[in-house]
Design a protein around this nucleic acid. Sequence first.
DNA 1: AACTAACCGAGACGGTACGTCGGGTCTTAGT
DNA 2: ACTAAGACCCGACGTACCGTCTCGGTTAGTT
Lengths: 192, 192, 192, 192
Amino acid sequence: MSPEPNSERRSERARLAILDAVFDLCVSKGYAKVTIEAIASQAGVGKPTIYRWWRSKGALALDVLNERIGSNTDFPDTGDIVADLTTQMTRVTALLTSDTGRVYRGVIGEAQNDPELMRAMRETVVNPRIHGCRRRLEIAVKAGQLRADVPTSSMVDLFYGPVYYRFLLGFDVPDIRACTDLVEEVVAGLRP
Amino acid sequence: MSPEPNSERRSERARLAILDAVFDLCVSKGYAKVTIEAIASQAGVGKPTIYRWWRSKGALALDVLNERIGSNTDFPDTGDIVADLTTQMTRVTALLTSDTGRVYRGVIGEAQNDPELMRAMRETVVNPRIHGCRRRLEIAVKAGQLRADVPTSSMVDLFYGPVYYRFLLGFDVPDIRACTDLVEEVVAGLRP
Amino acid sequence: MSPEPNSERRSERARLAILDAVFDLCVSKGYAKVTIEAIASQAGVGKPTIYRWWRSKGALALDVLNERIGSNTDFPDTGDIVADLTTQMTRVTALLTSDTGRVYRGVIGEAQNDPELMRAMRETVVNPRIHGCRRRLEIAVKAGQLRADVPTSSMVDLFYGPVYYRFLLGFDVPDIRACTDLVEEVVAGLRP
Amino acid sequence: MSPEPNSERRSERARLAILDAVFDLCVSKGYAKVTIEAIASQAGVGKPTIYRWWRSKGALALDVLNERIGSNTDFPDTGDIVADLTTQMTRVTALLTSDTGRVYRGVIGEAQNDPELMRAMRETVVNPRIHGCRRRLEIAVKAGQLRADVPTSSMVDLFYGPVYYRFLLGFDVPDIRACTDLVEEVVAGLRP
DNA sequence: AACTAACCGAGACGGTACGTCGGGTCTTAGT
DNA sequence: ACTAAGACCCGACGTACCGTCTCGGTTAGTT
């Protein structure tokens, strides 16, 4: 393969058709049953056009995911940290249980066996949102709403951990939503 | 395939050879690159013998996992809930970062796209240990060491969630161990 | 395997059930689609029972064939050589186009790639009948009805050859029957 | 499979490598022991490439046969019908006893259980040569060298029948060659 | 305005692994 | 001791996709 195709000449039509095809197929058949051939066929695109721009199905699905969830990583800030965290946790559970969540689940599953994909996913999806969360938590710390002696990175784990844990171990959706109920308790434990 | 082979006539030799082969191959090549053919070849077994007893690579890996982690789901009980939780969380991180953890990671990844496998995994691996944990937490609640108004199931999420979350989103091992440091803080928040 | 089972203790019931199963399956599914497993299953017999007594499906089918066509290799002798040959050729075409003929066809097909089967088939099926034919032809030669300077073995070829040729190259049945019409012409050419 | 691959894009290299591999393997191991896998491996070709263009091993071997025997179906015509028939029968026996004959034997054997292959074989191999023979015989009939009241199709049976009969029932090669000695006798019987 | 370079669609190709079928052997129970 | 049953090892089957590789065709930027 040419080492690096000229991205200025890239066909936007093909790119969008491919991303849409991946999303539709993930939703209708499930991530694992989506094949590159089916994507190419559904998108009306040749296989090399896919391989020219993505190194694997996982990388492709990651792009789909990023397109769908958008690049906004802001955390709500109403001044009320409990309300803001609850809002955000609710958004996360909504995402995970949506069609886009099926893509996300597929990407995470694939990434367990593809370190490069894992890295890319963490970098483009997870870390930006963690940082958004930490910024908000730091504001709360400075406002004296949260203890200063617990690293915000650990606080993040306490909020996101249970949600992803239940999501990725296949607990039912209501159970995942219940995680958001914990916010108040956790915050209670983190009060100065 | 015959719907149900006669398990009394099953070859224990073949069974063990298969389980060992799966483990060795997972460790040496990574779960995703393990094929049924390679397992059969390495175990000196015909492919039909594998398909006769397991419905998929995931189901097979799940059996390997269960063989390796054993059936002991007891939670330590020294009377000191913080110490016991720390002990257990340390054990969990040790497991996840071990060779057996590679198998576990593979199973979880596969299960994202195989609901039946997810169910079986939760039933045989996750739930028994959750129940062990809850039993210990309930003792602590009764002893007045933990709040009674937070469900023990939610407490479990707070302890296990961060560990799995970091494990499955590919954070580095030291980060995962750091999760155990949270135990004290979390318990602090859960004190009556 | 035991080198030679004791044939005195052989189960006649099993033997007959196997032969019948082979015949029925050849007729209903065609020789090529008959498997040892299907034979065993249909006959209510274990596979080793088959392998104990026959070295291959071909050998088994050959036995079936011999059971069906009987051991009578006599050639008709009314004194009229043309009539006798016509009678016999008619019998042969009737056999070939019967259900038993399907078995015969299968055996011959198999024998193309199994010299031992070919030898056994020639020895048990073909040669005895050739000899019967030659005996009759020799009587005719001695009676001055046929030339003495053409070997009877070659005469046999002239009578049987066209029939088998058309049978084994897949010409239609009516064409095969037409072969019998040749008898008179051939005999004419063989008159002293 | 796609119902009809585009034959314009077919790889001639692959096609020839496959045909050669089939021939070599038939010669070295015998038709029955030739597997599609071995062909693919020997030809340096993927199995799907074989299945894309041929429906079975038999169809493939038939193509090999046709490549090897060529498309020339002319019958010699020196004016001497006995000499011409002898020449041709000698050629046929030479073919049948050659390496190509092993392929032919395999195809005929397979065709006993594959009507479609039988039809194709008769159409591409047998019938053209029969017609060549009949054309020559008709010339002889018109020249008054052969009887006009015996159909040429039957005459063909008398010449080819014995050869194929002995070939397919496994008589030794010398016996097959002896068939050509019959030509003179048969022609004698067919003289007006 | 024609040229040309790169992407595009299509799909054949060499491969790997799939999940299944059946072959022939072996073991176990039963008669 | 032979049988019925069936699990076992093995090899091949025919299929699904993989990722690569030509092919023309189209399209855009350059001359």
